[in-house]
Structures are given as C-alpha cells and as structure tokens.
Design a binder for these strands. Structure first.
Lengths: 108, 108
DNA sequence: AATCTATGCGTTGAAAGACTAGGCTTAGGC
DNA sequence: GCCTAAGCCTAGTCTTTCAACGCATAGATT
C-alpha cells in the first residue's frame, strides 16, 4: 500500500462503478479511475486485465469487440444485471467494513 | 470481503492502532478490534498471529511473556518507535487511498 | 518507405495477505 | 477427574496485486 497504489479488495468495486454509466473499454477504465481519483489511484495493467477476466467468468460483465473513438480495435466491457447487483453488495460490504475500521481508528 | 471480514491490507494498521494506548496481549487485540468496531470486524486467529509475527520481524512491535488479568501465560505486544512511525504512515496511505476511492465511487 | 510513439490487449510468475483447519497448554468450575 | 474457555501457534490453500514481459496497429515524423 505505497504511494500510488490500490487498496486490495476494492478493485472490482471500482471497475464495476466505472462501468455503471455505460460500456467503456479496458484501457479507458484504468484512465478513468486515475483521473476521477485525482491521480490518487493507479490501476496497473497487470491488475486490470486479470480482474476483468475474473469478472467475465463470474458473469458480472460482458465484453464486445469494437472500435474506439481513436479508431482502434478495443474491447468494450458492459455491466450485466448480476454485475449491477454485485456492485451494490460490494458497496454495502465496503461501507460496513469502513465504518468498523473508522470506529477502531478513532476510539482505540 | 463477505459478512464479517476484514479489508485486506488494513490489518496491520488496526493492530498498531490498538497497541497505541499501551501493551496488550494477542488474544485481547482481536477482541478489542471486535468490540471497538461494534462487531463489524472480526480478526481470525489464523490472520492475527501471522500478522504479529510479521510485525515482530519488521520491528514494529516487541513481545514479552507475562501473566494476564485472568492469571494466564500470555504474550504482551508493545509498539516500538518504528511501529509508531509506521502507524502514522499507514494512516496517511489509507486516508489518501480512501479519498481516491470515494472520489471514484461518488463521481463515476 | 521506414521508424517511432502512444494506444490497447493480454499472460506469466512471484509475492503478500487472509482464512480454514488443525494442534497444544492450562486455569477454573463442576 | 473432566470439561470448557482462554490463549498461543502453524501448515496449507486461495485470492489478489503487481512487475515484467510480449504483441499489434494508428498516426505522426523523418
């Protein structure tokens, strides 16, 4: 958990969240997380693509090849119904655990 | 990250924080995290003791055998100077990353 | 035409961390 | 004498993240 890293266990939640407004391609997911977080978060490609594979296998996202705005062959990822449910449940889990952490950190 | 779990990467921060007020023994660390978090967090022994070993190796804590209030042989853990520094740096990292996560989650 | 750069998809292997499932000891109560 | 709870710990497994690669191509530069 150093300078420009991720909090382990939160990557899929972030990806699902970024996919929520609509389909985008893999590379753009990482960029979007980076800019939305004001450069605080940085998703490495070696983390991103394996995560997307896992999410495909679990049926949280669907993928479709297409052409980007920059005229390149890209893979668009899109939330499934199950992915939307999963996002909600990950948000709940995260919030609950975060409350627990903050309780300990403030009152210990 | 299911029902009663931890957020990976935050365990050492929680332990260091619980040790901050003064030395306590291992078993009590887990209990303290559990009650302080209002039962939201649950540290398994299989996570706790290996974490304490790592922290010993890295010099963040010292250990000393003693007798508990309940008259049992226990191992008291105590923050070192380096452990205190480490706690601060883990808090900073966590806060920064958390801000990044919340930015993405709210604005995606 | 050839080269370079940025974009874009991916894998592999290593490392770290958390959990399951066990084992061991002993104090105090029955 | 036995049981339960407190308390310490390890071994093995699983999951996740990351560094370090490889590959292709569009557009710009030379």
């Amino acid at each position: 958990m150093a300078k420009n890293e991720m909090l382990p266990g939160t990557l899929s939640m972030l990806i699902l969240r970024v996919l929520q407004p609509g389909p985008i391609h893999g590379y753009a997911i990482a960029q979007r997380i980076h800019t939305l977080s004001r450069e605080l978060l940085q998703v490495e490609e070696g983390s991103l693509y394996p995560a997307l594979q896992r999410m495909l296998l679990k049926g949280w996202v669907k993928a479709e090849w297409g052409i980007s705005e920059t005229n390149r062959k890209v893979r668009f990822y899109k939330l499934t119904a199950e992915g939307r449910r999963r996002l909600q449940s990950e948000i709940e889990d995260f919030d609950r655990i975060l409350h627990g952490i903050q309780a300990v950190m403030s009152k210990a």
